[in-house]
């Protein structure tokens, strides 16, 4: 890996996200650690979406579904441990993160397979609207199904556990999330560099040529969509544990929009685009939110400016154009 300008920036971002919370924790500022955890988890969710959107060019406006399903996996499994009522087939739930993550990832994989299989029959605007509509369908289901809190959401009374780590400590939980984020960014890099990634990106650039060399774009895209859903779902499980709360708002279309915004703020298809985007977003939210209640108004203006005038996002601004575009 040559030390191109983008790689240096990536390294700086990765170190920054690690060093700042560790230092803040030393100085006794747990709130900064929580903000950094929020950045790491949102970046993870957006990295998942970046597989579909950045590499595959699949503008999914419904990725909040997977984020929310992951969150509900954490909430539901934990609530059964707490209440002592067994779930289906006598399974008594779990408050162990590895078990929860496996459930979240499998559930999101299945949901991604079902939604992707139908949505990928279409393309362009249809794809955007259909993914949005499926997300709304699950959202309204979550609101109207009373078993797990319905509209009020579901609290996780005690943060779920990870073997060998005290997740109640903000810094330990942050390091866990950070580790998962870096592992998933590594997976993203592997995917992007693989034959599969090459085919996926080629299908984005020219579908007809990919088909002409004997690769079915549909299968490639569906696989990418499913992997993307799984990663976003894992982030959802962590997000629920971060807030110790999961509600239908994790499934809402605003969430889907925010995930796309994170990618665009950072730079579409870039390895660390989601990290840069999540940093910017959370810092905006914190800084503007401190100044004015109407911070979303200014977020809208900034976003509009980025879309109209700064198309490469933060990484594009700092590192120049991507090599293949």
């Amino acid at each position: 890996m040559a030390l191109s300008r983008e790689n240096i920036i990536n390294l700086v971002l990765a170190l920054l996200l690690l060093v700042v919370p560790v230092a803040a924790s030393q100085m006794g500022q747990p709130f900064t650690v929580t903000l950094a955890t929020r950045i790491a988890v949102l970046a993870l969710a957006a990295t998942g979406l970046n597989i579909a959107l950045g590499l595959g060019g699949l503008v999914s406006f419904g990725h909040a579904v997977f984020f929310g399903i992951g969150g509900y996996a954490a909430g539901i499994l934990a609530s059964h441990v707490f209440s002592g009522e067994p779930m289906m087939f006598g399974f008594e739930g779990s408050n162990q993160m590895p078990v929860i993550w496996i459930f979240a990832v499998i559930a999101c994989g299945l949901a991604g397979l079902a939604i992707g299989a139908i949505s990928l029959r279409t393309s362009g605007v249809y794809f955007i609207m259909i993914t949005l509509a499926f997300a709304q369908m699950i959202y309204y289901f979550a609101i109207s199904w009373p078993a797990y809190g319905g509209e009020d959401g579901l609290s996780i009374l005690v943060r779920n556990q990870f073997p060998g780590i005290n997740t109640m400590l903000p810094l330990s939980f942050f390091l866990l999330c950070y580790g998962v984020l870096i592992a998933c960014i590594g997976l993203f890099a592997l995917l992007r560099g693989s034959r599969f990634g090459a085919a996926l990106q080629a299908a984005r650039q020219n579908e007809v040529r990919v088909a002409a060399v004997g690769i079915s774009p549909y299968g490639i895209r569906l696989a990418a969509f499913v992997v993307s859903a799984m990663m976003t779902g894992l982030a959802g499980a962590l997000y629920a544990d971060l807030n110790k709360f999961v509600s239908p708002s994790m499934l809402s279309w605003h969430m889907s929009g925010e995930l796309i915004v994170l990618i665009i703020l950072g730079g579409t298809g870039r390895l660390f685009g989601p990290v840069a985007g999540a940093m910017l977003y959370v810092i905006f939210e914190f800084a503007l939110g401190g100044l004015t209640e109407r911070w979303q108004f200014f977020l809208g203006l900034i976003l509009l400016g980025v879309v109209l005038f700064a198309r490469g996002g933060l990484i594009g601004l700092l590192a120049g154009k991507a090599r293949h575009d």
């Binding site: 503008v59 915004v261 979303q296 108004f297 977020l299 976003l303």
Partner: peptide, 27 residues
């Protein structure tokens, strides 16, 4: 400015407009 852009840019810019309109109305 968005007619020649791809759908992703259109989605984002109009999403930004929603934020501006909604918060503006609340204001």
């Amino acid at each position: 400015r968005l007619y020649d852009r791809d759908h992703l840019d259109q989605v984002l810019a109009t999403f930004a407009l929603i934020l501006i309109f909604s918060e503006g109305a609340r204001w």
